[in-house]
Amino acid sequence: MKKISVAVTGLNAIDSPGPGISVIRALRESKVFDVRIIGLSYETLEPGIYMHDLVDKTYQVPLPSTGMELLMQRLAYICSQEKMDVIIPNFDAELFNYIKLSDRIKKELGISTFLPDLDAFEARHKVNLSEYGKKHGIRVPKSKTIFNIAELSTLKQEFEYPLAIKGKFYDATIVYSYEQAVAAFNKIASKWGLPIIAQEFVRGEEVNVTAIGDGKGALIGAVPMKKQYITDKGKAWSGISIDDNKLLDMTRRLMTSTKWRGGLELEIVKTDAEEYYLLEINPRFPAWIYLAVGCGQNHPEALVRMALGETVKPFTTYEVGKLFVRYSYDMIVDLKEFEKISTSGEL
């Protein structure tokens, strides 16, 4: 097996988990690679830092808000300590920087990525989603981008409550009144900045698809999932792979027309009338990506292969009716380890 080293972010396997640990498990199970995993963490208590059977070494990296230069310098430092073949960033908020830096990361550090280009990435932004839907022939709930609180009061002319109030990067709250909308606006804007998005609330069943594209228009793999149990943060605690050809067709069309490179997750509502509304495109693997592996499609492995320039044949089947059930687990960590990551930024 080929020995490679892959850096992964999103080690926060907490109640609202990042995808990192699932991506790492997928890579650990690869039949073609023998991987060394470099964890890249933002905070000192991300569980992945302490999961030594999954993560070989972790380095703290600067928050995306501190800018690209700092990230580049930190990656250069890590490169002086470690060989890294591929980086898989797993947070929405960091993707902008990684996409913009991808050429430099390749040229200066010799590390490959497999990310959508900036146009594709920006176009699927929640702020631009209506436009996106029109362009690619996909139904999207009506939405409005909101820059100040005064605009909230004008919403009732165009929308009916309930509404979804969403942050630019993360967070979404369903609100049932103007007062709730104001509270949600303040909370989300203070955390993620402006604008925020008000979106028509479409009633129906939520289904999700995790998919991966080759950047030339081909769909390499896709697994649809129906959430079985949802936490109070709206995250799937359990989900089951489903057989839905309409969903797969929609995913394939999207891949063809956007030429998406890398992983993504589609959040979709299926109404009683069997209409599919695209709520959101998350431009990276979801936290439940390991279900795809369990169903026979190892998307992270495919991504790494494509990042390294290999051609990957599309997956054609997956097992329907496989469940994932998430669980929490208390690790025992020595203070020495916390001290080390806190003061030296490495563990």
Binding site: E43, T44, L45, Q60, V61, P62, L63, T66, G67, E69, L70, Q73, R74, S342, G345
Partner: peptide
């Protein structure tokens, strides 16, 4: 105090 979520010095050092 070391707060969870606080920017670590390796990130901001070069700013």
């Amino acid at each position: 105090r070391l707060n969870v979520g606080l920017m670590n010095k390796y990130g901001t050092k070069t700013e």
